[in-house]
Amino acid sequence: MNQTSESQVLLVTENSRLDIEFELSVFDGPLIEKTAEGEVFSFQIGDGQLLPQLENLLIGLEVDTTAKFTLVPEQAFGRSDPNNFQVMPKSDFPADMPLSLGHVIGFDTPTGDEVPGTIIAVNGDEVTINFNHPLADKVIVFSATIKAIYQD
C-alpha cells in the first residue's frame, strides 16, 4: 500500500506573511489595541508594523493557534530613560494648544520623523515633556491567534 504525501503543517517563520487577530493590553490595566471583530491584521514578519519582540513570539506557531504572552518592560517597550524628559518654554507651543497633563503631542525630529511626547508637568512658563514611549515601564499582555500563514 502506498502512502500518500502527508499534509505539511505550516509554521510561522522569519519570512512569513501573516493574518492574525490580536489584543495588546497593559497587565491589570487598559486595552491598548485589538483587531476589530471579524477583521485580521496582515503583515510580513520584519516589515516594522509589529514590534520585533512580538513578532519573535509568533515564530513557530501554526494556523488556528492562540497564544498569550506576558512581557516585562525590558521585553516590550523598555524602561524610562531619564534623559528623555525635557523642559521646554511655553512659548515654544502654539497659543491655542491645550497644555494639559497627559496630552500627547507629535514633535518633528531633525530627520523628519515624528516622535510623541507626553506632557507630565506645567509649571509657570515651563512645560515638562516625557519623550519615553507611553508604554515604557509597563508589563504588557499580548494575545494573538494565527488566522493564515503565507510562505513566499
Score class of each variant (00 low, 15 high):
residue 152 D to M: 03
residue 149 I to T: 01
residue 87 V to D: 14
residue 25 S to Q: 14
residue 40 V to I: 00
residue 149 I to V: 06
residue 61 L to T: 12
residue 78 G to F: 01
residue 86 Q to M: 13
residue 150 Y to G: 08
residue 13 T to V: 06
residue 49 Q to L: 13
residue 22 F to M: 04
residue 40 V to A: 00
residue 124 G to H: 07
residue 5 S to L: 14
residue 129 I to T: 09
residue 48 G to E: 04
residue 149 I to A: 03
residue 91 S to L: 11
residue 39 E to R: 08
residue 27 F to P: 04
residue 92 D to G: 10
residue 140 I to T: 04
residue 104 V to D: 11
residue 21 E to Y: 03
residue 147 K to T: 09
residue 49 Q to P: 00
residue 68 K to L: 13
residue 150 Y to F: 13
residue 15 N to Y: 13
residue 149 I to M: 02
residue 45 I to W: 04
residue 16 S to K: 02
residue 119 I to R: 13
residue 127 V to Q: 07
residue 141 V to M: 11
residue 99 L to D: 10
residue 55 E to L: 04
residue 13 T to W: 06
residue 51 L to D: 07
residue 18 L to F: 02
residue 137 D to M: 01
residue 87 V to H: 10
residue 47 D to E: 10
residue 13 T to F: 07
residue 73 P to C: 10
residue 44 Q to Y: 10
residue 51 L to P: 00
residue 102 G to I: 00
residue 53 Q to A: 15
residue 28 D to M: 12
residue 103 H to P: 02
residue 1 M to E: 15
residue 88 M to E: 13
residue 34 K to M: 07
residue 93 F to R: 10
residue 95 A to G: 08
residue 58 L to F: 00
residue 106 G to T: 12
residue 119 I to Y: 08
residue 70 T to F: 09
residue 42 S to F: 01
residue 112 G to E: 08
residue 83 N to F: 11
residue 95 A to T: 12
residue 20 I to N: 00
residue 4 T to Y: 14
residue 12 V to D: 04
residue 35 T to Q: 02
residue 80 S to H: 08
residue 110 P to K: 06
residue 82 P to H: 02
residue 89 P to L: 12
residue 27 F to K: 15
residue 34 K to Y: 02
residue 150 Y to Q: 12
residue 35 T to I: 07
residue 43 F to H: 06
residue 109 T to Q: 05
residue 31 L to D: 10
residue 88 M to F: 09
residue 34 K to L: 04
residue 86 Q to C: 10
residue 28 D to Q: 15
residue 27 F to S: 15
residue 76 A to S: 15
residue 111 T to K: 11
residue 143 S to V: 15
residue 88 M to R: 15
residue 43 F to G: 02
residue 144 A to N: 09
residue 72 V to W: 04
residue 123 N to Q: 14
residue 9 V to T: 13
residue 93 F to S: 09
residue 142 F to Y: 06
residue 81 D to T: 01
residue 69 F to S: 12
residue 96 D to L: 01
residue 66 T to K: 10
residue 113 D to S: 14
residue 23 E to F: 05
residue 50 L to G: 06
residue 101 L to D: 05
residue 83 N to V: 12
residue 87 V to Y: 09
residue 112 G to H: 04
residue 141 V to R: 05
residue 118 T to D: 09
residue 44 Q to G: 10
residue 141 V to A: 09
residue 39 E to P: 00
residue 16 S to D: 05
residue 96 D to R: 01
residue 45 I to P: 08
residue 111 T to Y: 07
residue 38 G to W: 03
residue 103 H to L: 04
residue 8 Q to R: 05
residue 18 L to Y: 03
residue 109 T to A: 12
residue 9 V to N: 05
residue 20 I to T: 02
residue 44 Q to P: 01
residue 115 V to Y: 02
residue 77 F to H: 10
residue 88 M to Y: 08
residue 19 D to N: 13
residue 98 P to T: 06
residue 66 T to N: 03
residue 127 V to I: 13
residue 101 L to G: 06
residue 137 D to G: 00
residue 69 F to M: 07
residue 35 T to D: 01
residue 64 D to M: 00
residue 62 E to G: 12
residue 76 A to N: 05
residue 134 P to D: 14
residue 25 S to K: 15
residue 98 P to L: 05
residue 32 I to Y: 05
residue 149 I to G: 07
residue 135 L to E: 10
residue 70 T to L: 09
residue 132 N to G: 07
residue 140 I to K: 02
residue 75 Q to I: 05
residue 65 T to D: 11
residue 84 N to C: 08
residue 142 F to V: 00
residue 11 L to N: 12
residue 129 I to F: 04
residue 45 I to N: 08
